[in-house]
Design a protein around this nucleic acid. Structure first.
Lengths: 204, 204, 204, 204
DNA sequence: TATGAATGAGCATTCATTCAT
DNA sequence: AATGAATGAATGCTCATTCAT
């Protein structure tokens, strides 16, 4: 009988161990050696769980995104107003520790950085699908708001895209202006609110 | 005095030679060796004009930004409407060859990528100042439009920031969705126009 | 007793499973992992049947050589002329499928490559004994031909050695000239025939 | 002014330093690190003179082949008999030190080993051209012998090819039988002489 | 001023083998 | 007997930067 190991859990262990490194040093700057050491395993072991470095990155992002969507799904309730839901989407309430939110911001920035210079198209494809999920969430909120008679929107898709562009823009801006998570979030909410107020017409 | 001019010229020569390389291969992937070869000088010579790779990058960006602002300054005329000016700002008309626009887009993405993972703060500081210039331009246009009675805006700064976030967001989105310059530009204009229409109130 | 038979069978199973891999990718390039997977057993199991990679290689070669000699022994008949027998020795008729002949050629080349760089002397010893078998076969044919009065040979050993050198030389040449099995075989037979014609004197 | 360096000489220095390593440990088993250390330079420096490991190997072989052909060209004289020339071709007289001949034999074996498992075709192409040169030399000797009335040969090409196959076969045999240079050479000459005696008809 | 030779740390990935279960 | 998780050494190649000339 072979050693009994929860492969999925070990995968997570290794991925989790990489997160801190990626945040601190960046993706490119983190070596597989460091990841292995940080996870407390040998270098070769990392490759038993991940085909290559990219797979670790995507696995991490999957973990974060899944957790975000799941947590968001649990938080929202029937009677919440669409606008409330939307703003809650940008609040990573699932991060128990406060530091985790800063981590998520940094990771986001590192991942986008990696994507922006990727030549293989893997990152683009990955982020595209990931953005699509977010798009669907946001779009869903808006449509729901319209359906519930909360507000009127001429072109939901256009507004959704605008919101997503604001989100992405803010990730860049946050780095340039050396913002932390909260500052960035506050700014984002301010602009999304502004946009919503402008683009929706309250029903009488 | 002649010396200084020569020096400045050679700096430009070297910087210019790197642009294509940076666009084609990315900043990280372009070696100082290639830059030297492309500029037709020895590797050591590059270091006589630039302290390191970063300095080349900033020099390039300075060149492009200066050219952009200068060209924009020339294009706009007294009788143009504010909205016209604003949209013209996003049209890199100064790029004579069409390919150059694609280059500028790629460079922008590469630079942002570099900034997002920069630990020194140099990039952030640089981009912050650079973004500030753009902010001033856009803000100037909007204020002018208000002054001229072209439209009413409650909070010019907020709107300006929103526009800038859209711009940055689009640079990220363009890569994820594998867009070229024109597609990205079209999308940007669409969203800025939408925003302007929503956020400004035409005077009767 | 049953155990031993099983063990021998399993050894063969594993060895057989490696053949294709060795042909396709080369000995060095085939990992024990791949061999195990291909044989449908766990990596550790391979080591229960073979002390190391080399042992697998020798086992394979034993299988092939044994099959070759057995098949050859069956094919030749009393009334065949010595020359016929000799040429038949170079025809791997026992390979039912045509592709197998190409495999044998490749294996031969891979094995010789491994021997040529071997530091342990294991390969040399192995091949020496293996060459000796071939030498005996060929020498036997020639002696028989002489005994039967088919031809006259001054120095049977010298001629045998020459034939064997031609065979080995052809294996190298076949790779350099990118020959397949048939091309190599044709060339070999041509040269052996030429040698035989020159070195033997037909009796009147 | 840059450091004045005879690039060609340094190339040779590095190549020469690798020879011993390749002989002792084999090509595959010699790391670029060891080559650099052995040549007394940094690893990166090796790459200034050779694009990759293969280039070193081919450079070495070029050096040896060139030296061999040049030395051979000088040694042979007008009045030598064709057979004398031919046998001299297999005598690496240009190797001043005796150990060098053993080195050449080992290198030959290592190179052939590398070729036999090469998937790129580079080695095959290289050896093919190299074999062609040898073929031309040998063929030239034989033709000359015929022209001079030294002997009669029905098919010079066939005989030349046979000789070359003997040579290649002997390189393999030498390893299997653990022969040194002299033993191998003696055997080769014996077989070539035998072949020549059989295949040529002395004129009356 | 200009050159370009030299450096050497850095890194992703592979793989034969072991051994706890 | 059989498994397969774990190991960690090994390696070809890159590149920003320095400095002797």
């Amino acid at each position: 009988m072979a050693r009994i190991i929860d492969k999925e859990e070990k995968r997570c262990d290794i991925a989790r161990a990489s997160i801190e490194l990626f945040c601190d040093k960046g993706i490119q700057q983190t070596s597989m050696d460091e990841i292995a050491k940080s996870a407390g395993v040998a270098k070769g072991t990392v490759y038993l769980y991940f085909k290559n470095k990219e797979e670790i990155i995507f696995a991490i992002w999957d973990m974060i995104a899944q957790r975000h969507h799941e947590a968001f799904g649990k938080r929202i309730t029937e009677h919440m107003r669409a606008k409330e839901k939307l703003l809650d989407f940008f609040n990573f309430s699932e991060c128990e520790e406060e530091g985790n939110k800063e981590q998520v911001l940094k990771l986001y920035q590192h991942f986008i950085s990696a994507m922006l210079i990727d030549k293989t198209g893997l990152y683009s494809a990955y982020f595209e699908s990931f953005f699509q999920e977010d798009f669907d969430f946001i779009s869903g909120c808006l449509h729901e708001g319209v359906a519930k008679g909360e507000f009127l929107i001429d072109d939901v898709d256009l507004l959704t895209t605008s919101i997503m562009l604001l989100l992405k823009g803010l990730l860049v801006r946050a780095k340039a202006s050396n913002m932390g998570f909260y500052e960035a979030q506050t700014l984002l909410i301010k602009h999304v609110t502004f946009l919503l107020n402008q683009c929706t017409r309250s029903l009488p």
